[in-house]
Design a protein around this nucleic acid. Structure first.
Lengths: 335, 335
DNA sequence: CTGTTAGCGCCTTCAA
DNA sequence: TTGAAGGCGCTAACAG
């Protein structure tokens, strides 16, 4: 629908001043006398005038907009991350353009739209970026910060938690507690986070002379994780521990073990997750997990992006924040 | 950071055509010969040209953007709704401007930004709107659709599920199953959804000659709901059933009952929720609840908004979609 | 089918 | 401090 809105010209005419006076009136530190200011504001109020952000962006060449690309919004961890990020950027006067992509990529269409949208920065939440697009962003000097996803390209900044050491901790903790048949439940094959957690886990086991007993993929989804659990427990000997690549799947494992296999956690099977989402603390699960410092990650990512949007040249950095193991009740020592 | 981007002029010069030829080349159904089209596209590719959406919006007076205002993104129901909505609008070529607000209002600042942002439509997700802003939107003929929130103003469209009858069903079902001490756990005082569920519930009880045994408020938040549960169960006689205004809180009730009070669900206490989020189906809860037709609600809201954005005049409608009770295992008959 | 010509609504020198 | 004038990058008549 095309509607004609009130313009600064109309306000100017009503106030009996020039159009530029109106413009100055709505610019932060422009010099204008209190008197004309009053006249202009009165006229503006009367007409219901608001400056047109689009016209302003065109001339100032700054949209004060950042694009957020997110996949897995159904994962509470990312929903929370988005909420935090939104707050961070809103408070700095930036608007968020939201783009949802499916897990398995196909960001090309979306990325192309983002580039056209004149966003000044791009925040990637658990979404991947193809190298050509990363290059194009760099060429246009549009800063990109990825949270929890890695790209094989040095031009973009990355913030993630120490997935490798998180996985490593899980492996050595389970081994130290006497487990011998540890299974790993991975997330998406395409996700670097899962790959790093897995590698840490395997390395920790290897350091103890152990091997991973079984491996499955749950795509970070509840239902898929349940199916994977069934495959993991088709016949004895069962795994005596499962390390899931995130809490969401870990809970699915517990639910399935209890409801379908008649197995107890942690008496029969130990379970470890990753993230420390609120649900991990619920009495029913008391999930031992590895906390990602969500607040810090978002803060770091927002700060990085803000900083790079201000600067002339981008200097991408890679920041890995430490994880912290949270011991609850889903792991039991074996003898 | 201000960067100078490639303009259609530069492409035109390189391709040896006029600037308008370039423009036509990137407009859907403009007439242009295959030959010049090729020249232009080649030049564009070489320069890395992409049309500037902002400039385009300014002249066409259409931003192809809709603002989404959402509160409670930590509630899975709304995270899912947002995901669906995003898909619906993206597929129609609209961009989403995301605004998060806190539960208890203060939308003034945000609404003011939205009005400046030239969004062509506004989708309110569980967020309230003050009457003055609703009026301003109408005055500018910017369509507004609210999902799960009511405003005391006829100018905006509203989509919600039949909260009243959902509450009514909960009340009569519990009464019919022989409960006599039913408690209600409400959400935010400011939310119309909660108020309607409550009213339906109370009316159903009244129809059976019963009264609500106790009432508490959990603000739709997990922790608050746990605290409220403790207050509901300070001393016998305990409630024999709890109707929570959403699943999120219902689960909190169950967790607290089991872990802290040593009470079983449904043997000692029956619990009913609202929403039918995925978690309600988990084996640990098997929550009897009232399903909101999420898909339909989003589809209806998106369709409405899209339609109104196309039309010249807005004709706000109020659409109430039927809920459906989902019987699982969290209610047991009393004798 | 193509190029020329006006702006869209605003910010920003530049003189006055 | 103020107004006039010139664009920002693009689309949309209008002639040719």
């Amino acid at each position: 629908m095309k509607r004609r809105s009130v313009t600064s010209h109309e306000v100017a005419r009503l106030a009996g001043v020039s159009q530029s006076a109106v413009s100055r009136c709505f610019s932060p530190h422009a010099s204008i006398s209190a008197e004309t200011r009053e006249k202009v504001l009165a006229a503006a109020r009367q007409l219901g005038y608001r400056p047109n952000t689009i016209a302003r962006s065109l001339i100032t060449r700054s949209s004060r907009t950042v694009a957020v690309v997110v996949s897995q919004l159904d994962n509470p961890f990312y929903a929370l991350t988005l909420a935090r990020a939104s707050r961070a950027f809103q408070s700095e006067g930036y608007h968020l353009l939201l783009f949802l992509v499916s897990d398995d990529g196909d960001t090309t269409g979306v990325m192309s739209e983002i580039l056209q949208s004149q966003a000044e920065g791009i925040l990637m939440l658990a979404a991947s970026l193809t190298t050509p697009f990363a290059q194009e962003c760099v060429a246009r000097s549009i800063p990109v910060v990825m949270i929890n996803r890695t790209v094989d390209f040095t031009g973009v900044s990355q913030v993630s938690s120490d997935n490798y050491h998180g996985g490593y901790w899980a492996g050595s903790y389970l081994a130290g507690q006497g487990h011998r048949r540890m299974a790993f439940l991975n997330g998406l094959a395409s996700s670097s986070t899962g790959a790093h957690r897995r590698q840490g886990f395997l390395d920790a086991l290897a350091a103890q002379g152990l091997e991973c007993w079984a491996e499955e993929n749950g795509e970070y989804r509840f239902d898929k994780a349940r199916e994977a659990t069934r495959r993991l427990f088709v016949q004895p000997p069962y795994p005596d521990a499962v390390f899931a690549a995130n809490d969401h799947m870990a809970v699915a494992v517990i639910e399935t073990l209890r409801a379908e296999l008649g197995l107890r956690v942690p008496e029969d099977v130990s379970v470890i997750g990753f993230d420390d989402t609120p649900i991990a603390a619920w009495p029913s699960y008391r999930l031992t997990t590895i906390r990602q410092p969500l607040e810090d990650m978002v803060a770091a990512a927002a700060e990085l992006l803000l900083e790079q949007m201000r600067e002339e040249r981008l200097s991408p950095v890679q920041r890995i924040l430490p994880v912290v193991p949270i011991l609850r009740g889903s792991v039991q020592q074996r003898y």
